[in-house]
């Protein structure tokens, strides 16, 4: 990555971090309901991969820890926050919530809340790309725990069999909800599991964005060049619990501190400072500026937006009736 790109990505990562921390606060204040799964600690994964891909062009799908992936693809943070507030202006019109952010216009195909559920959907998106002949690829971001679902294996088999243009990104954060990977999974290093399907795979540090970017570039090139699927495992860590109701009783604070020593944002910050491309004062200003933007624009928009209308409770269950009448009534032209 060029220096200017790194500076831009640092800005984005700071936004991603502060956005999530602000969600935490809003949840405590009961402005956000339901389940809330936060991303701090894993920012280099989404950012590193998407810098190597084409956000808004390539199709991205993920699980329930989805806010940052949506924003990286081009979703407006205001609409994502409004969705968390359950507002009509939310990215899913307040019908989805934290786990179901969508932005089809930017090819963000959504967050799904069944662990592993997006695997076959991603392969299907890749199948559609293959049929239509486009140069997009499908990128499926999921955690390590998803790989213990049956559809993981079913999807890898089909993706390899049909040479589908799909990149599987495994953000291995070492925990599936509150169970460590050693206690749930016979093979800790996930990239080894895909060898059985003849899918090329790679593993790297998921905390250092430069490393993620270099590995992701090869992975993206492989898929975009028509060679079929690729599996990229990124070793990472989520600072917060699985969701807000998780007190992290299953791991030590010492372990968390070790990971925080290799914080993806601070590592990039320090690297830019060392290169003379950034000063500490500039970084602190960036943080302040980001917080101000989140408060004055993002939160304000969410707070002030209207609730969905109860009269529209059943809107979006089925396609707009008027457009479907020929098939519903059999009176096709």
């Amino acid at each position: 990555m060029k220096i200017d790109d790194k500076k831009r990505v640092l800005r984005e990562m700071v936004l991603h971090r502060r956005f999530e921390e602000r969600c935490y606060q809003a949840y405590i204040e009961r402005k956000i309901g339901g389940f809330l799964h936060l991303y701090p600690g894993q920012e280099a994964c989404c950012n590193g991969v998407m810098e190597a891909a084409r956000p808004g062009h390539d199709y991205v799908i993920t699980g329930y820890r989805d806010h940052v992936h949506a924003i990286k693809c081009g979703a407006d943070p205001k609409e994502v926050m409004a969705e968390l507030y359950g507002k009509e202006t939310g990215s899913s019109k307040g019908r989805g919530g934290s786990m179901h952010i969508f932005d089809a216009a930017h090819h963000f195909m959504g967050g799904y809340a069944l662990v592993g559920g997006p695997f076959p959907l991603a392969a299907g998106i890749a199948k559609a790309i293959q049929l239509k002949g486009g140069d997009e690829i499908a990128i499926c971001f999921l955690g390590d725990a998803a790989n213990n679902q049956g559809v993981f294996h079913e999807t890898l088999n089909m993706a390899a069999l049909w040479k589908l243009p799909v990149l599987f990104v495994c953000e291995n954060n070492l925990y599936g909800i509150g169970t460590s990977i050693e206690r749930s999974t016979a093979v800790v290093h996930q990239h080894k599991r895909v060898a059985a399907y003849n899918i090329p795979a790679d593993e790297c540090d998921g905390q250092d964005i430069d490393i993620v970017y270099e590995h992701a570039r090869k992975a993206v090139d492989h898929v975009r060049s028509g060679n079929g699927p690729f599996f990229l495992e990124l070793m990472t860590y989520r600072y917060r619990g699985h969701s807000m109701s998780d007190a992290r009783s299953y791991r030590s604070r010492e372990e968390e501190e070790v990971w925080k020593q290799r914080d993806p944002i601070l590592m990039l910050r320090d690297r830019l400072i060392t290169a003379g491309a950034l000063t500490m004062a500039e970084f602190e200003a960036l943080e302040k500026e980001t917080d101000a933007y989140i408060e004055n624009e993002v939160i304000k928009f969410a707070e002030e937006s209207p609730e969905p209308r109860v009269e529209e409770l059943e809107k979006y269950v089925f396609a707009d009736r008027e457009t479907q009448l020929p098939w519903l009534t059999g009176k096709a032209a």
Partner: peptide
């Protein structure tokens, strides 16, 4: 074979694959 797909015996997988393709208009 691109349009008439003999699938492996993986009902959850190929059903999800078809659904994912339908998101893009297939």
């Amino acid at each position: 074979p691109l349009r008439v797909m003999d699938t492996p015996i993986s009902e959850g997988g190929f059903t999800g694959l078809g659904i994912g393709a339908s998101f893009l208009g297939v």
